[in-house]
Amino acid sequence: MSESAPSANAAGRSGPGRVLVALYALFALAATARAGVQIATKFQEAPLAYLLSLAAGVIYIVATVGIARSGRTSHRVAMVSCAIELCGVLAVGTLSLLDPAAFPDDTVWSRFGSGYLFIPLVLPVLGMLWLRHVEKIRTGETAQAV
């Protein structure tokens, strides 16, 4: 490996990687805490919405840990988490627009995350792009080492 080539571990912990992990951690905390309070205090009002918010929070937690860690397995888990998250925000976003009565209270993903400045829609895309970037650096190291 060339000394001038950045390592995948260093790239994953650089400025953009740290910001991404911080955003995921913030959303993990916000979604999980909000869902926990809603489930504890008014679950009967909108059980689907609150359970979906809890699921989003758990997915954000898994993605946060996977992106923060440097191993291949962690990054694969994070990539799958981001893909599930993107599918969830697209599905729930579409359903919440087509059938608003099904969601009497918002989820994190309702209307594609409009209540959160559409960050839930953009975050998984950024996560997957970042993970791909780090993987390219990792495979570049492997090619240079041979």
Rank of each mutant, 00 (worst) to 15 (best):
G127W: 06
I61G: 10
W109M: 14
G36A: 09
L121G: 06
E141A: 14
A91D: 07
A63S: 12
G17K: 01
I59S: 03
K42F: 03
T139W: 07
P6K: 10
A63R: 04
C87P: 00
A25I: 04
A101V: 14
F112I: 10
T142G: 02
L26Q: 02
F112W: 15
V80M: 08
Y50P: 02
Y50F: 15
Y116W: 12
L54M: 14
A143C: 04
A28Y: 01
S110T: 13
V80T: 13
P16V: 05
A35K: 03
A63I: 12
L97W: 11
E135V: 06
A25D: 01
F118H: 14
E85A: 15
V58G: 05
G57M: 10
P16I: 05
T107P: 05
G93Q: 05
K42W: 03
V125E: 06
S114Y: 09
L54V: 06
W130I: 13
F27K: 00
R34H: 06
L126W: 11
L123V: 10
S53H: 03
R13S: 13
M79Q: 09
A56Y: 07
Q38N: 13
G12F: 00
A56C: 11
N9G: 08
A25T: 08
V19C: 00
L52Y: 06
F103Q: 10
R13C: 02
G93E: 06
V77H: 01
T73N: 11
I59E: 07
A78R: 01
T94Q: 04
R69W: 02
E45N: 08
G113Y: 04
S74Q: 03
R72G: 15
G113E: 03
L51R: 07
A49G: 10
T64W: 03
S14E: 00
R18A: 05
S81K: 04
R111K: 13
D106A: 14
L48C: 01
L126K: 04
R111P: 01
Q144N: 09
L98K: 11
P6V: 15
L51F: 04
Y24K: 09
A91T: 15
V122M: 11
C82I: 03
P100A: 07
R69P: 00
P104F: 08
G17T: 04
M128P: 00
L97D: 08
F43Y: 14
V65R: 08
G36R: 07
